[in-house]
């Protein structure tokens, strides 16, 4: 926002900065409407002040008071179970590796479950991450039943007394009914051992408005408890998570900031909003 007084063009710039961050038309309209109301009530005059108030609106929309800690255990007498889901190529396997890395560095023990039995070399990829971060990987036969691999991984975690079992699943587009049913089954089968403590939806920050539909359908199927927003190290702003929070009440818990094992960080609404409104805003 480069202008210094509040004319129509300044308002348009504000809207544009949200649209180009993938916040979406509807959420943008609601947020700008609230902002206009606030500006009227408070008698705000300068663009700098409005920018500050816009940041506050956005932070508020992200419900900064929410608990964003990962329920990764350790719990009394059983491992925490974390199910990792999302569309193709979003960053699920990489995020499993990174989360395992954080947990291991904190002194926890982790089993990885390679329940993507479908994509070429998917279980090898997860096993490489397992070796990299010091976690055992439970694998099944290629093309095998993903639910039974997930079941075996949790069983292995219980038997060996680890703190956390992270289950990587195959990428699937949320409009594929058969694949979504398969995912629901993975969760139900795992629940024979006990509750799934977290179902993490991996959302790629470059995703546009389809991200909301992803969140809606995956939540219907596995009751998503948190989002990991990946690839935030690129130029994309990831604004769709604002709509996901507003419409579905699912908080972002972590962000992915690169391809390396340490490129994972807690989600901080204030920093996220600053980056969203940053450079070209």
């Amino acid at each position: 926002l480069s202008r210094d007084h509040l004319d129509d063009e300044a308002w348009e710039e504000i809207e544009d900065s949200l649209i180009t961050a993938d916040v979406g038309v509807e959420a943008t309209q609601v947020i700008v409407e609230r902002l206009r109301e606030r500006v009227r009530v408070l008698g705000t005059r300068t663009v700098a002040e409005v920018r500050q108030q816009l940041a506050e609106e956005l932070i508020e929309a992200l419900e900064p008071g929410l608990d964003r800690t990962l329920k990764a255990g350790p719990f009394e007498g059983r491992p925490a179970v974390v199910l990792v889901v999302g569309v193709n190529g979003a960053g699920k396997t990489t995020t499993c590796g990174k989360i395992a890395r954080v947990l291991v560095a904190d002194g926890h023990t982790v089993v990885l479950g390679a329940a993507d039995t479908f994509r070429a070399a998917a279980s090898e990829q997860l096993a490489t991450w397992g070796e990299r971060v010091g976690a055992e990987t439970v694998r099944g036969p290629e093309g095998g039943d993903p639910a039974s691999v997930a079941f075996d991984a949790v069983k292995r975690g219980i038997d060996t007394g680890v703190h956390t079992v992270l289950i990587d699943t195959a990428g699937r587009l949320q409009n594929k009914v058969g694949l979504m049913d398969e995912l629901g089954k993975v969760k139900r089968v795992v629940e024979k051992h006990g509750p799934v403590d977290e179902a993490l939806l991996i959302l790629d920050a470059t995703t546009g408005q389809n991200g909301l539909e992803q969140a809606r359908v995956f939540t219907e199927v596995v009751d998503v408890t948190g989002v990991v927003l990946t690839k935030l190290d690129g130029t994309a702003k990831g604004g769709i998570v604002i709509a996901v929070q507003r419409k579905l009440g699912i908080p972002v818990k972590l962000v992915g900031l690169g391809e390396g094992p340490d490129d994972l960080a807690p989600f901080e609404p204030k920093a996220f909003v600053e980056a969203l409104l940053g450079s070209d805003g």
Partner: peptide, 15 residues
């Protein structure tokens, strides 16, 4: 390019 990509398509394509 992924058909799900949003507004970043321009910057990435330029790059």
């Amino acid at each position: 390019i992924d058909a799900m990509v949003g507004q970043d398509a321009v910057q990435t394509a330029e790059a």
